[in-house]
C-alpha cells in the first residue's frame, strides 16, 4: 500500500506569521489539469486592515536599518528563492507554465532580488542632492520611504511580477501589503515561507490572497496606505484613483490591458525605487 502524502494547508504571510483569513473563507485552487490542489485563503478587507497595521508597525524599524543591512537581507531572500527554486517552479507549473518557462521565471525573480539588493546603498546618492542655494545655507535633499505601500499584482508571471513590484518598495525601507494573483496565488504562498526565513523582519512584506473585486476598494481608500502600485484594468484604476484622492495617496497604475514584459531589463530600474520615495529638503545656515 502506497503511503498517502500529507498536503500543506496554504496560509498567507502577514505580520511575520502564517495565518488564515479572519473570515475563515477559502477558495479552491485547481492545477493546470483542473484537479483540486488546495484551498487558498480568501482574504477580506479586515485582513487587509490587519496587514496594514502589521506593515505600519514594522515600518520605522525597517527604514532605520542601514542600507547595507537591507541589501544583505534582500540578497538573503534571493538565496532562499534560489534554494527552493524547484518548488517555486512547480508552483508556477500549477498554473500551466512549462517547466522551462517556470524555471526561467524563478531565475528572473531571483536575479531581480539580487538587482535591488545592490541598489539599497546606492540610489540615495543618485536621487538625493546637495542644492547650491543663493544664500548662506547648506541645502540638501534626501529621500525617505513613503511608508506602507499597497501592491496589487497581476495574474501573469505570478512570482516575477509580484517580486518586481515588491522589491523596489522595500529596497528603500517601505513596508508592503501585496495582493497576489487571484488565479495563481500559490507562488505567493511559497514566497511567504521564503520571506519568513530570509531575515526580513516580520511585517515588512505582507502577502494576501483573495479576490481583487473584494479588496481593491479597500486598497483604494485605506488612508494609512501612502502609496499604491497596481497592475489594474481601467475600472480598477478609476476606483483606486478615486479612493486615493481622499487621502492624497501616491499612485502608480500599470495598465493590465497592455502587456508588460516582466522579464525585460526595463522592468527593473532606479525609477521604480523612486516611485515609493518622498523627497525631503533640509535647509541649515552656514555660519558661526
Amino acid at each position: 500500500m502506497t503511503r498517502l502524502p500529507i498536503t500543506k494547508t496554504p496560509k498567507v504571510y502577514v505580520g511575520g506569521a502564517f495565518i488564515r483569513s479572519e473570515s475563515a473563507r477559502v477558495y479552491p485552487l485547481h492545477d493546470a489539469s483542473g484537479a483540486f490542489y488546495a484551498n487558498i485563503p480568501q482574504c477580506t478587507r479586515k485582513d487587509l486592515r490587519n496587514a496594514v497595521e502589521a506593515a505600519a508597525k514594522a515600518g520605522p524599524g525597517w527604514a532605520r536599518r542601514t542600507a547595507y543591512n537591507r541589501g544583505q537581507i534582500l540578497y538573503r531572500l534571493g538565496e532562499m528563492l534560489e534554494a527552493r527554486a524547484s518548488e517555486l517552479a512547480a508552483a508556477l507549473q500549477l498554473g500551466g507554465a512549462t517547466p522551462a518557462a517556470a524555471a526561467r521565471e524563478v531565475a528572473a525573480a531571483v536575479d531581480r532580488l539580487v538587482y535591488y539588493a545592490g541598489w539599497t546603498d546606492k540610489y540615495e546618492s543618485l536621487l538625493g542632492s546637495v542644492n547650491p542655494v543663493a544664500a548662506p545655507y547648506f541645502n540638501f535633499t534626501v529621500t525617505e520611504p513613503m511608508g506602507v505601500v499597497g501592491i496589487i499584482a497581476p495574474d501573469e508571471c505570478p512570482l516575477l511580477a509580484l517580486i518586481t513590484l515588491i522589491a523596489p518598495a522595500i529596497t528603500s525601507g517601505n513596508t508592503v501589503v501585496a495582493l497576489a494573483s487571484s488565479k495563481q496565488p500559490y507562488p505567493a504562498i511559497l514566497l511567504g515561507e521564503m520571506l519568513a526565513t530570509s531575515d526580513l523582519p516580520g511585517g515588512v512584506v505582507n502577502l494576501l490572497t483573495g479576490f481583487r473585486k473584494e479588496l481593491v476598494p479597500t486598497f483604494a481608500t485605506h488612508a494609512h496606505l501612502r502609496a499604491l502600485i497596481a497592475v489594474a484594468d481601467p475600472e480598477e484604476r478609476k476606483t483606486l484613483a478615486l479612493g486615493a484622492a481622499d487621502s492624497v495617496k501616491r499612485v502608480r497604475l500599470i495598465k493590465a490591458e497592455v502587456a508588460t514584459d516582466w522579464f525585460a531589463d526595463a522592468a527593473q530600474s532606479l525609477q521604480a525605487i523612486r516611485d515609493t520615495l518622498e523627497f525631503k529638503t533640509t535647509w541649515h545656515p552656514v555660519g558661526t
Binding site: 542632492s129 542644492n131 547650491p132 542655494v133 543663493a134 544664500a135 545655507y137 541645502n139 535633499t141 501612502r226 487621502s247 492624497v248 501616491r250 518622498e278 523627497f279 525631503k280 529638503t281 533640509t282 535647509w283 541649515h284 545656515p285
Partner: peptide, 28 residues
C-alpha cells in the same frame, strides 16, 4: 514634511525641491 527649515524659516530657491508629504500633495 517635505521641507525642513533648521534655524531658519520660509526660505526658497529654484535649486531647492519643494513639496509635501501626506495630504500636502505630491511631486516636487
Amino acid at each position: 514634511a517635505g521641507v525642513v527649515w533648521a534655524n531658519t524659516y520660509n526660505k526658497f530657491d529654484p535649486v531647492s525641491p519643494f513639496g509635501g508629504y501626506k495630504e500636502s500633495g505630491f511631486g516636487r
